[in-house]
């Protein structure tokens, strides 16, 4: 397999494009230059560090540092879900709902893929575990963040209707069901769209990467399919778990709507 190595100049060229985009944003007054540069800088530092960490990690097979890294990834993802909410749940729930649902979905789907499908030895071999978990966490994170945002925003907007339905004696599950359906739909749309256009319009990131790194296209396609299906399952189950816990948390034991449990209401 021929691997074409990227030099500093190649990356510098791509980075220059981002700088030009930031300059354009400044010139046109679009106001995104700061966020764009900050995000680019973050990705530079984070991916550089990850490269270093993985290099060290791949060189050994002690499980402890590997699991520690997965823990850090989960914590950052949970923090990111919380950061994307306008109406956050107060207290530990704000981070707990995202962390719990991502743990349940991403970790179990990764475990399933590794133990049943890929079967590396040992099963936690970091060359497989870390990339798989990363792809799953990244995607379930978006699905869960969108779903939660949709649920809490609707609950705030529709508060008078929800209160009226409760007053008429409708059980809380019945009152929240249409909101939860809509939130679930919103959370799943990105992955449904991704699957619909995969290979026709877009060449998904992982497949592109593998082909660029010299893998045969058919092998790359099979891996990409595996990843897409796992992401769909992980996102769906993760969003379902998060929305179930979150909608339960919107009501108390006496089925009262408790928007006071959200920030910024």
């Amino acid at each position: 397999m021929d691997l074409i190595h990227l030099g500093p100049l190649d990356l510098g060229l791509a980075a220059a494009l981002v700088l030009m985009l930031a300059a354009l944003s400044l010139y046109l007054g679009l106001g995104v230059e700061r966020r764009l540069l900050l995000a680019a800088l973050r990705s530079l530092i984070q991916l550089g560090l990850l490269g270093l960490v993985l290099k060290t990690l791949f060189a050994q097979t002690h499980p402890l540092p590997i699991f520690a890294l997965t823990g850090v990834m989960l914590a950052v993802a949970a923090w990111e879900v919380r950061a994307r909410q306008r109406h956050r749940f107060r207290g530990p729930w704000g981070i707990g709902i995202g962390a719990l649902s991502m743990f349940v979905s991403s970790f179990s789907v990764t475990l399933l893929a590794l133990v049943v499908v890929i079967r590396p030895t040992p099963w936690y071999a970091p060359q497989y575990l870390i990339p798989f978990l990363g792809m799953l966490l990244g995607n379930t994170m978006s699905g869960i963040a969108i779903g939660l945002e949709s649920l809490t925003r609707q609950a705030c907007d529709l508060r008078p209707v929800l209160e009226d339905r409760l007053a008429l004696g409708h059980p809380w599950q019945q009152v929240i069901a249409p909101l939860r359906r809509e939130a679930m739909r919103a959370g799943l749309i990105p992955i449904i769209n991704a699957m619909s256009v995969a290979g026709v319009v877009s060449l998904p990131g992982m497949m592109t990467g593998q082909i660029l790194a010299g893998s045969p296209p058919m092998e790359a396609a099979k891996y990409q399919l595996l990843i897409l299906f796992l992401i769909a399952a992980g996102t769906g189950f993760g969003a379902a778990a998060a929305l179930w816990v979150a909608s339960r948390r919107l009501f108390d034991g006496r089925e009262r709507l408790r928007l006071d449990r959200l920030d910024g209401v």
Binding site: P160, E163, D164, L166, L168, G169, P171, E255, R256
Partner: peptide, 20 residues
């Protein structure tokens, strides 16, 4: 009583009603 059953029996008609 479960709260929704209580509200079926002790029912509030709010000053301004909303419709869904």
């Amino acid at each position: 009583l479960p709260a929704h059953l209580w509200r079926r029996r002790v029912m509030l008609v709010p000053a301004e009603a909303h419709w869904w």
